[in-house]
Design a protein around this nucleic acid. Sequence first.
DNA 1: ATGAAAGCGCTAACAC
DNA 2: GTGTTAGCGCTTTCAT
Lengths: 339, 339
Amino acid sequence: MEKEITIYDIAKLLNLSPATVSRALNDHPAINSNTKNIITTAAKEMGYRSNTFASNLRRQRTNTIGVIVPRLNSNFMSYVLAGMEKVANEAGYNLIISQSLESVKKEIANAETMFNSRVDGLLVSLAYDTDSIDHFDKFVRKQIPLLFFDRVAAHKNCTNIIIDNVRAGYEATEHLIEQGCRRIMHVTGNLKRNVYADRLKGYKLALMDHNLVFDDSLLLVTDLSREAGLQAARRIEALDEKPDGLFVTNDLCAVSCMGELKQVGLSIPQDIAVVGFNNDPVSQVVEPKLTTIHYPGQEMGEMAVQCLINHLNGTMSMTSTNTIVLRSELQIRASSLRK
Amino acid sequence: MEKEITIYDIAKLLNLSPATVSRALNDHPAINSNTKNIITTAAKEMGYRSNTFASNLRRQRTNTIGVIVPRLNSNFMSYVLAGMEKVANEAGYNLIISQSLESVKKEIANAETMFNSRVDGLLVSLAYDTDSIDHFDKFVRKQIPLLFFDRVAAHKNCTNIIIDNVRAGYEATEHLIEQGCRRIMHVTGNLKRNVYADRLKGYKLALMDHNLVFDDSLLLVTDLSREAGLQAARRIEALDEKPDGLFVTNDLCAVSCMGELKQVGLSIPQDIAVVGFNNDPVSQVVEPKLTTIHYPGQEMGEMAVQCLINHLNGTMSMTSTNTIVLRSELQIRASSLRK
DNA sequence: ATGAAAGCGCTAACAC
DNA sequence: GTGTTAGCGCTTTCAT
């Protein structure tokens, strides 16, 4: 193993003090530009690399942002992460990413790790069944900026980045109503999570605004897996009064449901019009193409990191801005177009 | 800002030495289990958190693994990362993830950052157009284990984790031949990358083994985007002698190509049988369902991290094992079945 | 513009 | 089984 070069080695070689070397390497203004040159050149030649740990230890700052997400392997989340990485990288921050696999227990453990890793800030999208969010209190107490995105929680002094899920749910439902649907089934996820609760609200509001009654038997809370899509289809088959519209808050689930419905001879959108959520690639490939809500994953990721970094730089405080709402959009395709 | 608790604070309170506290907190065997209890309890009560930087600085180890991938937002890669995170997390390692966005320049910059972050090991899948891999030499020189996965390069002392792309290409092509195809078009990516070069080899070998000649005009090198899929379709339309088989090394590209082919009235698989690559979710949704090569992303990620960690622990040296080949599998679906 | 020196919090070799 | 002590490499205050 080659010996690591330190600023002491450079200092000794050039007959300077380590302090000067440190300053030169950090572009301190009070250093003669000539000495600065000499030092940086020597550093390069000697193969010096700065020791982030010593520096972090000394400065009490890590240039690292922690990210906790439910799952890494979803199309939406991969775009979020791509956006985060892009902005973080450009600003010289590292990203430590971990997944809760939809379990509170793992979420707590991950939060602990992030805390001990002394991340400068934390970005979180909550697990499916997280109830209490006390495990993030320690961040707030230590004034470590905490930001929730997508699956958020009300936590004072924390910024939330979301889309307007109520509106998205409303638009999806209203669109179905406009296409002539009168009995619209709604398949969604755990109502503890804002995203699903809000979409349901939007669904209900749209029904009300169009003088349709909310029917409990048309609401199905699932884990939104493909399996859940099949279940939903079976539920539909079993109903005496069949729904003529279907709003599923996840494209993959919607697509699997559509497959099963087609299988049993229902035609889409004539017998049942379908709207999904997320604008996943599959939505453009399924036959008929799936109407869905476009979800700005990459922007959400970019925004989240930008927001955090601005706060860390003091450019913009996060405590004042409390919620940032990104624009989502209804993408109308064949699966819901009856006219 | 609350004051940070250190092991000194705990030591002082309990009238013990910092060393004992440190040992207790790290579960050192030579510590009385009673004192251990007292210490851990006190630590918890005082809100102590270990300082990773001090520890890293002292131990010259970071417990961090660097990952450089071309893009985060692909289905395959998100599974790879999910697998990596899982194993790393369980073993107490952090992951620093960055994307090259298919550019060598960014790849070099990312490697530099990883190097300065003193990752314990580095996992790399190469960018589209990376030629030289000299920017990874410094890792080898510093004995930092370097492992390539999927898009790999021959670099001595580095483990590669791949699937047998020659075989996969062979199987895909042979399957088409068995379905009666005689003119098989091959749409693939930059041949600098092993994955594409090897699949082409497999394609050629299968042709030879079945007494078919390789026709240059049936080979199309693209960036495998959806746009490329459209181009491929147009190329097919323009050909005088139309191909009756199509092997595309990416499902998304294949699917977009299929869409265009259907549009102009070709029927799949009767007029042209299609095989993709990756087993992306879209392959099961497109009509007809796409025959493809299943690519074990999650396992590849798990394997890569496991391998690295074993090496770091001295459990298994990476210098001896040089290449690990994971099993891929042809998934036969309707898009290629003519019999 | 540069240097001296202290200390960030932890670990491990060595002592007892 | 526990304590003493010396750094790991860097930054920064205070001097000069």
